[in-house]
Design a binder for these strands. Sequence first.
RNA 1: GCGAAAGUGGUGGAAUUGGUAGACACGCUGGAUUUAGGAUCCAGUUCCGCGAGGAAUGGGGGUUCGAAUCCCCCCUUUCGCACCA
Length: 801
Amino acid sequence: MVTVDKPKRKYDFRSIEGKWQKAWQDQNLYAAPDIPDADNKFYMLVMFAYPSGDMHMGHFRNYIIGDAVARYEMMQGKAVLHPFGWDAFGLPAERAAIDRDIHPRQWTQENVTVSRATLQKAAISYDWSREINSSEPEYYKWTQWLFIQLFNKGLAYRKRGFVNWCPTDQTVLANEQVKDGRCERCDTLVEKKDQVQWYFKITEYADQLLDDLDNLPDWPDSVKTMQREWIGRSHGAEVDFTIEDTGEKLPIFTTRPDTIYGVTFMAIAPESEIINRLNLEPEYAEAVADYQMQALRRSEIERAAATGEKDGVFTGKYAVNPYNGERVQLWVADYVLAGYGTGVVMAVPAHDTRDFAFARKYDIPIKVVIHPNADTTLEVATMEDAFTDYGPMVNSDRFDGLASFEAVKTVTDYAAQQGFGRHKINYKLKDWLISRQRYWGCPIPIIHCDKCGQVPVPEADLPVELPDVKNFLPKGRSPLADVPAYMNVACPKCGGEAERDPDTMDTYACSSWYQMRYTDPHNDQAIFNKDVASAWLPIDLYVGGITHATGHLIYFRFFHKFLRDLGLVNVDEPVTRLVCLGMVQDETGVVMSKSKGNTVSPGPLMDEYGIDITRLAMFFTAPTEKEVVWSGATMVGVQKFVHNKLFPLIENYRGSKPDLKQRFKLEEMNEYERSIFVKLNQTIKRVSDDIVRLQFNTAIAALMELLRDYDSANISSDQLNDCLVLKTIQLAAPLAPHVAEELWHQSGFEESVFRSEWPVYDPEAIVGDLIEIAVQVNGKLRDTVRVAAEADQADTGHHFS
RNA sequence: GCGAAAGUGGUGGAAUUGGUAGACACGCUGGAUUUAGGAUCCAGUUCCGCGAGGAAUGGGGGUUCGAAUCCCCCCUUUCGCACCA
């Protein structure tokens, strides 16, 4: 067969991209309406960016995914809100600024400028009129306003306690910012320090945060599981033991009150202040003090690493078990966590692995109170480990013979009756420590007055602006404390001399409510208009990294619920559907990050191949939730596709200006027409479904198949041919917007392809609705049957009977 | 240790609810074209076998007419939590 080379029109992206980007901007294509029709809106949000330099392929992937969905929803006729902004406060900016000897504001602004330019170059469909920056007074005024609302409701408070301290960053950290005992930002081992700090009372919302996870079917299970474990609710009993000498009550928390007759000692966390009140005899006091010092010096990791090898020190004191009046030794041991429960545990060596190891080591009595079952009994002498399951109770006085699982309640009820105990729920979740001893953050809007105490800054005086400070090197206390002009103010209540709080807030406070500000970003009278916010919320799709599963994604649910309780929003949860992207790795499998210096920037790729080809390559590499190893190899395939198939497609357009809604009759088509028409309709369905489930790689594959099979020469109907061309262009538009827009206009349209209506498939032209069922006997294919997809068992059953 | 997710060609990955496994690409092999290279086009490419055919979705069992998909055990990898009483 002789093939005649047709001269292909080259896809010259350089002359095309700029033209359409300008056109989109001129016609305000991305502008969201002020108030949408709540039934026909789509709020597409990608986590906002930390401006730490230009973006790499990992960021790029996030943004083009959001962009494709936003464009698709636009073509569905939805009012789309697709905003962007900058999470601009925080330590990295401060550290970089110190290294370069410039102001963090300058460093941040330079990065914002660069990143914004790259995003605009990539033509991400953001409504830039809604851009926000958390380090600007216009924004952080409302972060402060929120702080004050929390303060007024008793949900922002100061307390003394052992906190996580990063010696490198010279500031305290929230639990969520400690990973594996190390600072999330700089990887330094975290120390414990006894300090007064500000907290947000997120524990007030613990139950809602936990229970409402059940109402989020479109959140990944992994995230919900992580949040459930992070909140860590457990039901149990609080029982008051008594310190023998002083008579002081010593409450403990246990989930196993059924083992309470087996208590043979008690253990106190070394940080606990109870120890100070024990009036230790001199012969014990010194050893206990030494032990406390030693435990405090050890990091969490070291303490936890000694799994199995428990140690502690006897206080010389005894406590009394209220159930049976037995006196048991009181120990200090660092396997007890100060921050959970009451910081004191009842130890039941026979039925708890840790207590067992401890008792064996220090030769403390072991007492069996539960047997595995009625026929099997436990002998202390032969036990090699604790028996931690439930079973019939023994040696437990009035409770003997009860099944211990049910006895949890019975035993607790008894304590409640007698007045020495109660049912109790405990959480691993702790209140959110939000004060930071650093400069580049949102100032805490509280004034400390000797007479009036903690006084919030009056709303009219907000924002409390972050002053310019020359030297903001970390020194363990806020640099703002050394700025008298900032610190010294009159008390808003009594007018007397007072001081501002010198600390700034955790940046996670700034990022916990930005999603609402986007709905009304420039409101200077209120945090946002509640009707506007209610119309846009909840976010329909939120895209971001899995790394925020227990940090940001809990905090912002908490803020959302708080704002709901203030009456400012009317839904319970901020996000309907959450999707966490896999990381982008370099060719050696290492996650791309600025700190590792292995980033690939999309900029040069876009310059060399064009924006659309770069986007398609990223999309085509892997489905959304998987991590991507970026090698650039996929560039080749999608480049061929765009140059040889997609862009030249327009040459087959015959100019019939078809009505895109007309219906074609299968029975009037020739064989080829029928098969390509079916393929078109299958492709419409596949691409639509794939975009919704964010599986762009298969959407592109479907388009490749369609164009592979398409041959204009075999189609006699101009209308059919032209519909096929135009609908293919539309299907490609969310993925390759510049190419699609160019082709759309070359076919004679004046209006943007993104204002056109997304194609709808003809259900009658989807052969896929017939399923071919292979009938097999003993694994051999005997027959195939075609049945309608909706056919149920009854329809197909007779073939097998 | 506990919990979760996942294991498919040389590679990235398809197979939306159990229905002809390997779509779509990359790479590779052969051929065509080209002054040459790149590029482009055509053909082939899971494995074994000349072939008919057989085997195959980490391994082993099970349910089913039929399993990559559902159930059980084991192995491996990744992630999360890590003394939570």
